[in-house]
């Protein structure tokens, strides 16, 4: 019964969301202007002169660098050029903004729909910071001149020019193979979208490649269910499996460890029979539990990886203790 009730609740949620969206779209249609209004605004008083006239002076753009087919008409983006051709003044020609690009490129990808509200856009970047509309490189991308990652794809080389802290992480002992060219920054990040509102939850992106860690599991590990980045740093880490800290630190910063199963009752342990009874000198009312006579320190727990025994940290179909 509860399941039916929850399913009905989910359906109502969905219906509600669609209703809100349709309402928002209807409001938007009434209030705002149609799409065509965002075409490049003309230069007042200027008349078209044609691309050939532009090439008289701008030979390096029209000749040395090449132009994509939709970019071959200079005045389509820069506006009519008669005044500029006559005066050669910078003020008599316009340089396109991101809005001009999007007047054609919104259909280019669905994530372009978020450019205007995306983090790159809000940070003040414009299309030409990454794209050279006069180039025939893939996606008209600019090329980095200072990359020290020879195997990295050209897109990622451009990304790490600004995101240098991320670039540094690709030199860490373990990292996703971006520096090696096995994947690209855009394999995970779309620079045009607003990552804060990406569809799905935090793990859905990781699940596109790591399906074998995502379940659904019979026995689950809640942090793995919520967000892979609680334990992993996808850009790079000092330890294996891109863990944010080494084991067992990463585990015992959350988990308590019981004396019952983790004190190495069989065989010798380090600090055998060590008695620890002192109070914490600097923290009032904090007192550790002394080891009983014959009890051993939990050294075995510290001296190996937790995952040596609890190997199924992402989830399991078999074992409630996530051991396999």
């Amino acid at each position: 019964m509860r399941k039916i009730g929850r399913a009905r609740g989910s359906a109502l949620r969905l219906q509600g969301l669609f209703f809100v969206l349709i309402l928002a779209a209807a409001c938007a249609s009434v209030v705002w202007e149609p799409r065509g209004s965002r075409r490049t605004t003309p230069v007042p008083g200027a008349t078209p002169v044609g691309t050939e006239e532009c090439r008289v002076c701008h030979e390096e753009i029209a000749g040395h660098e090449t132009m994509a087919s939709y970019h071959s008409n200079c005045e389509a983006c820069h506006g009519s050029g008669s005044l500029h051709a006559e005066s050669e003044a910078v003020g008599d020609i316009r340089n396109p903004s991101s809005g001009d690009c999007l007047s054609c490129h919104i259909p280019g990808r669905d994530t372009h729909l978020q450019w205007g509200v995306g983090q790159h856009s809000q940070a003040g970047l414009i299309c030409s910071d990454c794209h050279n509309p006069h180039s025939t490189q893939r996606q008209n991308l600019r090329l980095s001149q200072t990359s020290s990652f020879p195997d990295m794809d050209t897109t990622s080389q451009l990304c790490v020019e600004c995101h240098s802290d991320v670039g540094s992480r690709f030199r860490y002992p373990t990292h996703h193979p971006v520096a090696e060219g096995g994947m690209s920054c855009v394999s995970c990040h779309d620079p045009h979208e607003d990552a804060r509102v990406r569809p799905g939850d935090q793990n859905q992106l990781c699940a596109n490649c790591h399906q074998d860690t995502i379940g659904p599991w019979i026995y689950e590990h809640p942090p793995a269910t919520e967000d892979c980045q609680i334990c992993h740093d996808p850009h790079g880490s000092v330890t294996n499996n891109m863990l944010v800290t080494v084991q067992p630190v990463i585990c015992i910063s959350c988990h308590s460890v019981n004396d019952q199963f983790h004190q190495l009752a069989i065989g010798p342990g380090i600090l055998d029979n060590q008695q620890i009874t002192q109070d914490f000198p600097t923290i009032p009312n904090q007192r550790i539990k002394p080891f009983a006579a014959g009890q051993k320190n939990q050294a075995g727990t510290y001296l190996r990886r937790c995952t040596d025994c609890h190997g199924a940290v992402h989830g399991s179909y078999t074992d409630e203790h996530l051991r396999h």
């Binding site: 969905l14 969301l17 669609f18 809100v20 969206l21 928002a24 779209a25 938007a28 249609s29 705002w32 202007e33 799409r35 209004s37 965002r38 809005g99 999007l102 919104i106 669905d110 729909l113 978020q114 205007g116 509200v117 607003d194 509102v197 569809p199 799905g200 859905q204 699940a207 995502i214 379940g215 659904p216």
Partner: peptide, 21 residues
């Protein structure tokens, strides 16, 4: 499903997504 409305200065974007694994 995603929609966007953009004028010279105002940008509005909304979307809904559903997935079943």
């Amino acid at each position: 499903l995603q929609i966007t409305k953009q004028t010279e200065a105002v940008v509005f974007n909304a979307g809904v997504s559903a997935a079943r694994l």
